[in-house]
Amino acid sequence: MKKAIYLLLLLLIVFTGCSKEEEKAQNNKQRDSSTEEKAVPDGEEEAEKALKNIFPLTGMKTDEEADNRIIGIMVNNHTLARPQSGLSSADMVFEILAEGKITRLLALYQSKIPDVVGPVRSAREYYFKLANAYNALYVYHGAANFVNDMIINRGIEHLNGSIYDNDGNLFKREAFRKAPHNSYLQVDAVYDVAEGKGYEVTSSFEGLEFLDEKEVVSLSGEPANHVEIVYSANNPMEIVEFAYDEASGKYTRFNDREKTVELNTDEAVQVENIFIVETHHEVIDDAGRRAIDLASGGNAYLIQKGNVQKVQWENQDGKIIPVIDGKPAGFVPGKTWINIIPSAPGIEQSVTISN
């Protein structure tokens, strides 16, 4: 009898212990489940933190450091230099007259660094002043002696293709084009060569003014689905156009009625912002070189998302920005193309905007 009672008590203890273990396991499972449920939003929060960095020239979020130094490259826009290489990767492009009625491009790269950019052409004062305002490494191929002297004397950190001409590392002459339209920058080598000259290759740069999502959606203005810029009434082939694609919210660029594309891939050059600036131009020598006023401000068009706004432009710390009622007007996050045109004949005479 005592033996039977002992066995019964033993079974009761074992059963109770098992029940408590099952209850403990169930509680642990519930706690684990609760932790798992919290892990999803925590993960999203971490992902959001990972995108806390913003590329300063595009306003786009990134999980990268976004502190690689901006590279400003002089890109040839002569008819014999088209189609170019690397323009589709540029964060921002300034298009300005060089000599005659041919424009030249200063392309700024930071968020995306292409393998090759070119053809690369010679320097001008107003281009290197713009590049310096963005603390960019200024890359060009050749210049008049007095321009080179200005670059050196003003402490512009630069890489001159005349020094590295066809060295196979930084610059390469391509056989499929004739000089001076065949010098291509091997961009992968830029930072290494710059470091060798004692230049910094990382840099903190205060970003431009960008619109948030709600501001982008609420953009308004006159319709601007097609933009045409005539740099010379006497030379109808020097025409720049932009065509709006509502599906992508981007403008595709054309030059002399031909789409601007990448040389090797035919990828179209597209931008989110077109900023057209009117300012005084003056020919200063027999070679047709110009002085261009990038300080005084004046009339401008800001074209985004199929709309155009008449704005003013100002120079703030060397950077050319759009202004509305005295306050900076934000860019749509993305790429920007800035066309600087002469005040004679003027913006209204040189630019046609239509639906």
Rank of each mutant, 00 (worst) to 15 (best):
A107S: 12
Y140G: 02
A66Y: 14
V116Q: 13
F128S: 01
E99L: 12
S85R: 05
N145V: 08
P56V: 03
M60F: 07
V139L: 15
D67A: 12
G72D: 04
A107T: 01
I152Y: 02
I71H: 07
I96T: 07
Y138V: 03
L108C: 06
G100D: 11
N76Q: 06
A123E: 04
S89E: 10
D149S: 12
T62Y: 04
S85Y: 05
P114I: 00
L97C: 11
L130P: 04
A136G: 07
V147H: 05
K61R: 15
P119N: 15
E99M: 14
E125F: 04
E99V: 08
I151N: 00
L108P: 02
Y134N: 07
E125G: 07
G86N: 06
S88V: 01
Y109N: 06
G118N: 04
S111N: 09
V120Y: 06
Y134R: 02
A81C: 11
E64D: 12
T79F: 15
K112D: 12
L57G: 13
I102N: 08
A133W: 06
V116R: 09
I102K: 10
E157M: 03
G59A: 14
G118M: 03
Y140N: 08
D149H: 12
N132S: 10
A131G: 03
A81R: 00
G155T: 06
N135G: 13
I156E: 02
D91Q: 09
S122H: 11
I151Q: 00
I151C: 00
E157Q: 13
I113W: 09
F128N: 01
N153C: 13
D67V: 15
I96S: 12
H158I: 03
V117G: 03
I156G: 00
N148L: 14
D67S: 09
S89W: 05
V116K: 12
Y109A: 04
Y127S: 10
T58L: 04
V147I: 14
F146D: 13
F128Q: 00
N148C: 04
M92F: 02
V120F: 01
Y134I: 01
D115K: 14
V147Q: 03
A107D: 02
P114T: 06
I102H: 03
M60A: 15
P56G: 05
D91L: 07
E125V: 06
Y140T: 09
S89F: 09
A136M: 05
L87Y: 02
L130A: 05
R154F: 10
M92E: 02
E65P: 11
S85N: 07
I113E: 04
I54A: 10
Y138F: 15
L97K: 09
S122G: 14
K129T: 06
G86T: 04
N135S: 14
L137E: 08
P119M: 15
L137I: 15
K101H: 13
I151D: 00
N132W: 03
Q110S: 12
G100A: 09
L87A: 06
I113L: 11
A133S: 12
A123R: 01
A123T: 01
V117A: 13
R69Q: 13
I71P: 07
E65D: 15
I102R: 06
N76S: 13
K129W: 08
F94L: 07
N135F: 01
